[in-house]
């Protein structure tokens, strides 16, 4: 199993997580994905990549350095993103019932391991 697939497995095993994507940050293209039906991976990758890119620029402009983790909460759940090295971002789509704390730990660890 590839490092990317291992990372996706770890994240999607967290209860409530509906899918995970590894994407190229600069391109917004999917590198690997493991998603439930009904989630458009291509759109999620493009938009999450754009979001992380803009937040990175905002954090740098504010003198905060690189963002380590991004959580976007909405009515139906959360988008979680962990930027890694080598221009990749690990993104998870979590439902409202998800254990976001555990997902965050798994994502930070996985992002650190597979890059």
């Amino acid at each position: 199993m590839s490092a990317a697939q291992t990372a996706l497995d770890r994240v999607t095993r967290v209860p409530g997580v509906r899918g995970a994507i590894i994407l190229s940050a600069s391109d917004g293209l999917v590198v690997a994905e493991q998603l439930m039906d009904g989630i458009d991976g291509r759109a999620a990758a493009a938009l999450a990549g754009s979001l992380v890119g803009r937040l990175t620029r905002a954090a740098r402009s504010a003198g905060l350095g690189e963002p380590a983790f991004v959580q976007l909460r909405s009515e139906g759940g959360s988008i979680l993103a962990a930027p890694g090295g080598q221009d990749v971002v690990l993104v998870a789509v979590a439902g409202p019932e998800a254990n976001v704390g555990l997902a965050r730990l798994e994502m930070l660890d996985a992002a650190g391991r597979f890059v």
Binding site: S24, S26, D27, G28, L29, R42, A43, A46, L47, S50
Partner: peptide, 11 residues
């Protein structure tokens, strides 16, 4: 340009 991405443009 770099202000957007190929993923966003294609989408």
């Amino acid at each position: 340009g770099p202000e957007t991405s190929v993923g966003i443009v294609q989408l």
